[in-house]
Design a protein around this nucleic acid. Structure first.
Lengths: 205, 205
DNA sequence: CAGACTACTGACCGAACGGTAGAAAATCCA
DNA sequence: TGGATTTTCTACCGTTCGGTCAGTAGTCTG
């Protein structure tokens, strides 16, 4: 009997049961689906519980609040995406790393529509995430890539990494959003086109 | 006594009173502010009414539903923006029109922060708008501009208008969003940078 | 001045929200 | 087997939501 007044797990990093892990994983999974389907505003505790086949109270037994569930789901998606893109980017350097960033991001999001919808929702949605911090981190990462390509002499000297990063991220996001709105949109071709444009615009002399 | 069961104005295009016009305009104005400040999810009928200094019922006297108020506000912003950008674009042709599109859009949104926040909110928000239709229209418009520049021989022959339009819109939106998150961000410089990049990437041989 | 119409209020409604309480299953361990 | 612990349930609470309703000042008109 630890002096743990909290009814929900959460406290003092107890070992975490098998059932606990399984339920958490399941709840995160269904929450991703629910947010992808109904949007942030349409994601209620009741809906998550129903999708998981348990009661609202059971959900709140595993997570302290509804927001905690959504945030965990969001973090899960972000981690998965970051790992995927990170692997692709780390395998190259210079301008090739920037190209890999564009292509892997588009590829990942094409292959994981639910994740994509959740992230797109989350970018606009207020509740769920560290939003602007995430975005700033992403910009810095890309700016780092651009800066490296510039330092390697592959990009022109007058390229401004921060601004370029904002533009690249915006272009990639637009390609992803477009493919969500119009499934017939050829994302791979669009990614190729973007890479070509970046090469012509940034490479050089 | 026309067979008009609807309590709210709305029906049969009656002349529309002075007070009516004034209240409508006021409600649209405060709704833009409220959405800009609290987001789509945080915009309740009560909040709109309070901001306008009248009761909820009074708001619903002038508009049939809450969504109608939000939609009217959204349409108002869109119309204003479209007019501004349209004027700038129509004054040029070819590649210069594309440049004007980028610059005027960034300029307008820099000068109207509340409008900007409402639009950015609206793009992600489910309730308010014809969202995807608006986006598609916007893409077509820009694709038309790109196509014209291409036909005029200012852009390379292998430029794909649709994909290019998606990329341009994404880049512009990213610049705008960035300036919202970081007021110190130099949007005019970013717009210049983007225009330069587009010139290098698309202009052609 | 009577009646109609405009513009509005406050009180209220049902539904949905996130979250809590207490008891009941299910499971584990001695 | 039996007591403790984990996991889940049903029932409920308070709040907020969009929206309705009956009534009422004020104004305009015949």
């Amino acid at each position: 009997m630890p002096p743990d007044s909290t009814p929900a797990r959460a406290r003092a990093t107890r070992p975490l049961t098998i059932t606990e892990r399984a339920r958490r994983a399941q709840l995160i999974g269904v929450t991703i689906e629910v947010v992808a389907r109904y949007g942030h505003a349409g994601t209620s505790l009741a809906r998550i519980a129903e999708a998981a086949g348990i009661s609202k109270a059971a959900v709140l037994y595993h997570f302290p609040t509804k927001d905690a569930v959504v945030q965990a789901a969001y973090a899960s998606v972000l981690e998965s995406l970051t790992e995927y893109v990170g692997a692709a980017v780390d395998a190259r350097s210079g301008a090739a790393a920037v190209d890999a960033y564009v292509r892997s991001l588009v590829a990942y999001l094409r292959d994981h529509p639910a994740h994509t919808r959740m992230i797109v929702e989350g970018l606009g949605g207020a509740t769920g995430s560290a939003d602007s911090a995430d975005q700033a981190g992403r910009r810095e990462a890309v700016a780092g890539l651009v800066g490296a390509a510039k330092a390697a002499g592959e990009y022109r000297a007058d390229v401004e990494p921060q601004i370029t990063a904002v533009i690249i991220n915006g272009a990639v996001d637009a390609i992803v959003s477009e493919s969500l709105a119009d499934p017939a949109f050829d994302t791979a071709r669009a990614a190729d086109e973007l890479v070509t444009m970046l090469d012509r615009a940034l490479a050089g002399k």
